[in-house]
Design a protein around this nucleic acid. Sequence first.
DNA 1: CCGCAAACAGAATGATAATTCTGCTAACGT
DNA 2: ACGTTAGCAGAATTATCATTCTGTTTGCGG
Lengths: 185, 185
Amino acid sequence: MPRLTDARKELRRTQIAEAAVRCFSRNGLKRTSIADITAESGLSAGSIYAHYRNKADLVQAAARETLDKRDGTISEYAAADAPPSPDELLSRLIAAIDPAEARVGVQTWGESTTDPAIRDIVADTTDRMRAMVHDCVTAWLVKVEHHDPPHAREFATPIAHQVMALYQAELLYTALRTPAEETPS
Amino acid sequence: MPRLTDARKELRRTQIAEAAVRCFSRNGLKRTSIADITAESGLSAGSIYAHYRNKADLVQAAARETLDKRDGTISEYAAADAPPSPDELLSRLIAAIDPAEARVGVQTWGESTTDPAIRDIVADTTDRMRAMVHDCVTAWLVKVEHHDPPHAREFATPIAHQVMALYQAELLYTALRTPAEETPS
DNA sequence: CCGCAAACAGAATGATAATTCTGCTAACGT
DNA sequence: ACGTTAGCAGAATTATCATTCTGTTTGCGG
């Protein structure tokens, strides 16, 4: 078959990446072999290497996948007429945590300590998310608490920092609390 | 040589464990081979296996080593005449963070998502540290803010939770911020 | 419809690295 | 001091995997 249409190709890529995430969630980044991923995705090794240059490349895609997923929901909060208070925002973020993704997320933290590519992905994603939280807190300060915008932005910084810290700690606790699902081996 | 005296034996164990921590800090838990550790410790593979049953055993020892080291300092704060305020306590905890240990600490978080033994170590250590922070905050509430003890203990719980979260987040940021030292390979 | 190259399966390859094995050496109890 | 035997070095063994290779199949442009 000649090159797949772009849509199809992207579909395959996410099919593989999602299978990889499931494997990582169960067995961790390093304990997951390409064979595991072929089994989980229903594809073959050859096929996977047609879509990803190597395992590191695939790990990066999986990391981006899980870390990005969290971003979507927050941005709309900041734009809402009645933005949530920091406490409320934190509750919603925590409620949205999925245990499997928490595990992979924490695994990427671990990996980021030695792999520069992963490190950049984690740092970028964290920064972007913090900025969104900052926007949301600022909006709350302005619209609900009636601070004036310049002051609100400054005042929001430490609050955003705290919300992020509490959220990330909760991510860690979720990963610690929920046992990895038994390997279907 | 007949069995080493207990003190010597323990010395060797920590010699190996500390070399392992240095390797882990540089290359991560999984990328570190036994050969790396022999090079770093100056001992041989056979020797390492005389002291640790296998690599997993050694990883656990290294994890305990780094995670425990943090505990020592806090307990004395709680017993002090003028216990530090939560803000002050957090500052001191953060100031005491060592980048190399932060990296290994975050790596153990990642590992804990799939290895039950590491998971227990991390959970235990975290609980113990939280309890110490709780004691310290309670002491501050009682001695400095003049709450009465029963109320103080209850009031301290969410504060201790926040201090822990902010500390752990800082640990993560430190690990992200400081590049792993170049491998001397 | 057709043909071609890309997508795919699955086996082969090669590297890496954990663990074990074979002796040799030296630290402790006496 | 000395013999014993655990500690140790370093090679050998083996298992595990990432990656590549060899055909085969099939989706898409013409």
